[in-house]
């Protein structure tokens, strides 16, 4: 039988929708794990990223740390921590939060970095304090990129909680490993479809939020040219602002 039709039969089978191992429960677990991870990650990384972006200090360290964290293979860390700390929710949660930090941090400081220096100077010159500049000028302007960081962190966390079900955990990855153990490809494929749909929905949701949080003033003043190129000297009457 065609593997896709058997996967959809598996998805449509009412037996798989009931009880503690049913699809709604597993989707709920997966979402819960992801939300908890993101919440902790955001609480740690976003203030740190904003501080780095606002003060301009510690960026080198943040980039380095992000690079190192990204080079570490997640599966290895997961299993090593599970071996040392025991089976349970905490060891994988620690790894997941660590995994979510680089994109969250990068989003926060890239957002702050993208705020035009002249805008900040203007805010200061009309008498705003440091905190006011941060919360009323920099943060609103940086928000789309901050959300962008959370978006890619979220995708990564959804993907990796699936892999983490190698440990005795819930979530949609459970079906993939259970199916693998008994060579039930329909179950593996059906569950894979569910994870992919979940990830795409999350991605779409964040894309929407990213659009909604762009300040109205920015939208009004945005030029149609989306390319990141400095305007040609001859064509522009404003003094050219060269980067750096």
């Amino acid at each position: 039988m065609n593997s896709w039709s058997s996967a959809f039969l598996w998805l449509a089978d009412p037996v798989n929708w009931a009880g503690p191992g049913g699809i709604p429960t597993r989707v709920g677990e997966h979402l819960l794990y992801t939300l908890v991870t993101l919440l902790i990650g955001v609480i740690i990384a976003v203030p740190a990223g904003l501080a780095i972006g606002h003060t301009g200090r510690g960026r080198g360290i943040a980039v380095q740390a992000s690079g190192v964290l990204r080079a570490l293979p997640t599966l290895g860390l997961l299993l090593l921590l599970a071996l040392w700390l025991g089976i349970g929710f905490t060891p994988p949660l620690i790894v997941m939060v660590a995994l979510a930090l680089p994109p969250l941090l990068a989003g926060a400081y890239a957002g702050m970095d993208a705020v035009d220096r002249q805008t900040i100077d203007a805010a200061r010159s009309i008498g705003m304090t440091g905190w006011q500049v941060l919360f009323q000028v920099e943060l609103p302007l940086a928000l789309p990129l901050v959300i962008g960081g959370i978006r890619s962190g979220c995708l990564q966390v959804i993907a990796t909680w699936t892999v983490a079900a190698y440990l005795p955990l819930g979530g949609l990855g459970r079906y993939i490993y259970d199916g693998l153990a008994v060579q039930n490809y329909a179950e593996m494929l059906g569950a894979s479809v569910l994870v992919i749909v979940l990830a795409l929905l999350a991605d779409g949701l964040f894309a929407l939020v990213q659009r909604l949080v762009v300040p109205r003033g920015v939208l009004a003043g945005r030029s149609r040219d989306v390319r990141t190129r400095t305007p040609r000297r001859s064509a522009s009457s404003t003094p050219s602002t060269t980067a750096g």
Partner: peptide, 28 residues
């Protein structure tokens, strides 16, 4: 420019697909 939005949207979607499910789905 016309193709830019579409191309970038498609690669964005590709990147959103989680790894293990993709490994599982590709054989079929």
């Amino acid at each position: 420019r016309v193709g830019r939005g579409t191309i970038l949207a498609v690669v964005g979607l590709l990147y959103a697909v989680p790894s293990l499910p993709l490994f599982v789905a590709l054989p079929s």
